[in-house]
Design a protein around this nucleic acid. Structure first.
Length: 305
RNA sequence: GGUACCGUAGCUCAGUUGGUAGAGCAGAGGACUGAAAAUCCUCGUGUCACUGGUUCGAUUCCCGUCGGUACCA
């Protein structure tokens, strides 16, 4: 049976390096599960694999779309499953790595299929929130989908808005589509998560942010500044620099904010990962040992001449 | 040296007409099925700078000390 190896971990934990090492040992490819490395316009700030790294191992889902594109977990899940279908014909194992928990889960367990939401519907729901606030959203969800209202995070406008979009789009309650049955994949899934001492991870994060600045994050952000309202740019490392460009803080403060927000992001990732007991947590040393014991996934594909 | 203002949670500050205090940020924990590096929830006892006085009672009023800031010399 084929195997999908998941390499997860908080930001700055060394996923990219571990994945590449493992991919080389297995003679296979890497799929990114990083919702920001998807975008071709975002490079330095997302710590996307370097040209050199991309040259060492074939990567998918890195820089494959534009910040202008509409792309969500469902699109991603579909794209990954289709790709995997082809890859498993020539590879016994494939590696997927990234920090976006929701995206990894969608690949591992599937995600309910739901109709697309027209832009007009989204605008309508946004307008309801802008004008009526949280309360208006709550009232509507309670009216149109009381079942979901009972279990949803009622303080979170995003959750309520999403439910309403589906209700308005389909005329049916969101719950009717939100089944939540885990799909059984026809391949094995082996999950690793990179473990770090908290303080060490913070140091790695701080160092990496400084490195990003040396590599030209400021210029990258400046180039993207005109498009700052795109959702893809509502991202740590960019939004703080946009605030600096807007004169809301000094550059030094912006950099401090990037570090803080990256730490907070790492914390949220840990929360997400901890609740999934399927992960084997490994330190970087253990990760190296794991990679060293692996056998190539394409044993007999020598030169045919 | 003089005058004024300030000294309260890790940081920035609010407040108590005298009954020992609260926000934002940071931090910790958590949630999360189509915006997810997003979005959201929970958690705040700290010699209220120090000393003395007035008072039943002072962080709050008064004297002084120390530290800071501003202005005047």
């Amino acid at each position: 049976m084929k195997t999908l190896i998941v390499i997860a971990g908080p930001t700055a934990s060394g996923k990219t390096a571990f994945a590449i090492e493992m991919a080389k040992a297995l003679d296979t490819v890497i799929l990114s599960a990083d919702s920001r490395q998807f975008y071709k316009e975002m490079n330095i700030g997302t710590a996307a694999p370097t040209e050199e790294e991309l040259g060492q191992v074939k990567h998918y889902f890195v820089h494959h779309i534009s910040i202008e594109d509409k792309y969500d977990v469902a699109d991603y899940e579909q794209d990954v499953m289709q790709l995997l279908n082809g890859l498993f014909k020539t590879h016994d194992t494939v590696i997927i790595t990234g920090g976006s928990g929701l995206f990894i889960d969608a690949v591992c367990h599937g995600i309910d299929t739901m109709p697309d939401v027209w832009p007009e519907i989204r605008e309508k729901v946004q307008k309801l929130f802008d004008e009526g606030g949280l309360k208006a959203l709550q009232n509507e969800v309670q009216r149109l989908d009381p079942q979901y209202f009972d279990i949803v995070d009622q303080q979170n406008p995003r959750r309520l808005q999403r439910a309403l979009e589906i209700c308005y789009q389909t005329g049916q309650p969101f719950s009717a589509f939100r089944i939540g049955n885990a799909v059984e994949r026809d391949f094995h899934i082996k999950k690793y998560a990179l473990l770090w001492d908290r303080q060490q991870l913070i140091e790695r994060i701080d160092k990496r942010v400084d490195l990003m600045m040396e590599q030209g994050l400021l210029e990258e952000a400046k180039a993207l500044y005109p498009k700052r309202h795109l959702n893809a740019l509502n991202t740590v490392g960019y939004k703080e620099l946009f605030a600096y460009f807007d004169g809301q803080c000094t550059l030094k403060e912006a950099i401090g904010q990037i570090k803080t927000h990256t730490r907070q992001y790492a914390k949220r990732q840990m929360t997400w990962l901890r609740k999934d007991t399927g992960y084997q947590w490994v330190t970087s040393d253990e990760a190296k040992k794991v990679a060293a014991t692996l056998q190539p996934s394409i044993p007999q594909q020598q030169e045919l001449h």
